[in-house]
Design a protein around this nucleic acid. Structure first.
Lengths: 138, 138
DNA sequence: CTGCGTGCAAAACGTTTGCAACTTG
DNA sequence: CAAGTTGCAAACGTTTTGCACGCAG
């Protein structure tokens, strides 16, 4: 993976400590972070960072295609580094957002969509809703 | 399609004029309605209906599986009668939400997901983001 | 007649904005 | 030094809540 600094430069974004920290937080986190959770996480190392900066930075990253916003039924946006596309699973009970493995059959879906519309597709998001293992046990 | 009244009774919901009107509005509309647009639309025939009732009713319908909430990047929830599953397209520019035709290849995706996880899948949502025809012309 | 549904107003929530001070290149 | 970024506080718009009244079963 490219150095963060490099990624920012490539997109004509000024390299600031806040941007590096936010990007790294998203890379390092195994879970899907909200703006608020990024903010709380970064406050330990960057006590003066503001929530507004987090939102503005995330918005910038979305515009440049570095990250993706995931909008699910709990009304809180989560953010995901754009790497290999993969579907997501949302538990209707605990609202946890899980990554699912990349699907081979998505290639067919993409082709079928390309044939059925002349819209220009940039990104794709697949959400499966249901009950996760943990909540099913209870 | 079943009579609205019947659908409500089946789900142990009291049959009220508001519920019937909201359900019908969602059935009849060719576009994807937000709570606000349902409210504005219904005010013509039900001048005393309140936005809170619309929200509460939608929430009830979601819980009983009659409708689905579509959360896209514009931050305004849209609601869709749960019929045949089909993908959606969201224009990054005008934010319009389009229906795409049902995809044959989705069956493979469903199967692949079933094989790769033991989460219990209840509903699925596919969103394609990009630029729509109208915005591409400009 | 009992419990659920409605409507109003107020509150809550995540997110966005305006602006002055400060950094980056 | 110019242009873009930050942080604060206030504003915004959607959605939720509490509560008294009303209607469905």
């Amino acid at each position: 993976m490219l150095e963060v600094t490099e990624k920012l430069r490539q997109n004509n974004l000024k390299v600031t400590p806040q941007r590096i920290a936010i990007y790294n937080a998203l890379c390092e986190s195994r879970s899907h972070l909200s703006a608020e959770s990024i903010y709380n996480y970064l406050r330990e190392s960057y006590p003066t960072i503001s929530l507004a900066t987090v939102y503005k930075t995330l918005s910038t990253f979305i515009d440049t295609g570095l990250i993706q916003e995931l909008n699910t039924s709990d009304g809180i946006s989560k953010y995901d580094i754009v790497n290999d596309p993969h579907p997501h699973f949302v538990c209707n009970i605990c609202k946890t957002l899980y990554d699912l493995p990349e699907l081979k059959s998505m290639e067919n879906v993409r082709n079928e969509i390309k044939d059925s519309t002349n819209f220009e597709i940039i990104t794709e998001q697949i959400f499966l809703y249901g009950i996760c293992d943990k909540c099913n046990e209870v």
